[in-house]
Simulated assay, not measured.
Amino acid sequence: MADVAREANVSGQTVSRVSNGRDNVDPETRERVLEAMRKLGYRPNSAARALRSGRFHSIGVIMFTLSSFGNMRTLDAIAIAAADAGYSITLIPVPHPTQGEVSVAFDRLSEEAVDGVIIIVEAHLLDENDVVLPAGLPVVVVDSTARDRYPVVDTDQAHGARLATEHLLELGHRTVWHVAGPERSYSATHRRESWEATLRAHGAEVPPVVVGDWSSESGHELGLELARNPEVTAIFAANDQMALGVLRAMHETGRAVPDEVSVVGFDDMEESRSFWPPLTTVRQFFGEVGRRSVEALLHEVESGEQEDSTLVATELIVRESTAAPRA
């Protein structure tokens, strides 16, 4: 910094203001300093800056899985929102989410020096007392619960499941069968509970739930089981991948969609409009979830105050996989 100051014929304080992006520097002087930086190959030392300011301008992300559509879309939005705010992200995957694994992930992030952490763990882990999170570190939770300890940003899972179920009932189907996600999944639990509550509110029979693992393979296997039951005329799958497997099963067993069986998914992944038939589904706004999670975290980092939890609305996208049942 002293070399830059000599080269630009300014004070070290002026160089500091320029390197930190302050606006109280004359434009001509700023350009002279920047030119000196370029000439000398000067790069501001982020570690030294962190020691002075107490900020690392880094966000930690603990994520349950990198394979799911929703998690990757949310992570992409977090990375973009963080970069726009001048922050980098440090990602710690937790492939087998247990209480101990989440605690270990926090320990690793503590070594990486982050200003706060976003947790994307869809299992019901954060409801359990054995998860130890460090005191004083800002935390925002996505797609889980946190017993009111931390702000939660999530899709309104219950509203989306209600939209899907009511759509099928309003078409005239007597009831709706459900291909649920894993029992340990927070999202799957809320979608299943809302599906059941909606059927009961409309006086419809609640069929037995069949449980998959989010994959199209499990949807196909369970779809073959449902296809053998002639009473099944409407199916709500807890995600688009399992809905794809259901569509394949119906095709293989000769049950036409939507003439004999209507199918609704959840997510609105890009490929859903290219399924055959194009899939009616519930759209989640993962980009909005990611952006708001970064906003909530940085608000606490900068002010020391937690924001309220946020639910991002869902939208029903009606395509050709649903229709009124045959008379």
Rank of each mutant, 00 (worst) to 15 (best):
H190K: 11
V211W: 14
A164H: 01
G219A: 11
A180L: 04
E205M: 11
A201I: 10
E196I: 15
L168Y: 02
G223C: 07
H202W: 09
S218H: 07
D213P: 08
W177P: 00
H173G: 11
L171D: 08
H202N: 09
A164V: 01
A161R: 00
R162Y: 06
V211T: 15
R191W: 03
Y186R: 01
A188K: 01
V211I: 15
W195C: 02
A201G: 12
H167E: 12
W214I: 07
T198G: 06
E170W: 10
E217T: 11
T198L: 07
E170H: 12
R162T: 13
E221P: 08
H202E: 10
H173Y: 11
V209D: 01
G160H: 01
R192G: 04
H167Q: 11
P207Q: 06
P182N: 04
Q157Y: 05
E170R: 14
V211C: 12
R162G: 12
L171S: 08
G223M: 08
A188H: 01
T198K: 03
T189Q: 15
S194N: 04
R200E: 11
E170G: 14
G203D: 08
A180G: 11
R174F: 05
D154C: 15
A158G: 12
V210S: 13
T155M: 13
P182K: 00
G223S: 09
H178G: 03
R192K: 11
R191H: 00
S194W: 00
L224A: 11
T198E: 06
S216T: 10
S215G: 08
V210P: 03
H220M: 10
G203H: 06
A201Y: 11
L199Y: 03
E166N: 14
G160K: 01
S216H: 14
H178S: 07
S185F: 02
A158P: 01
V179W: 03
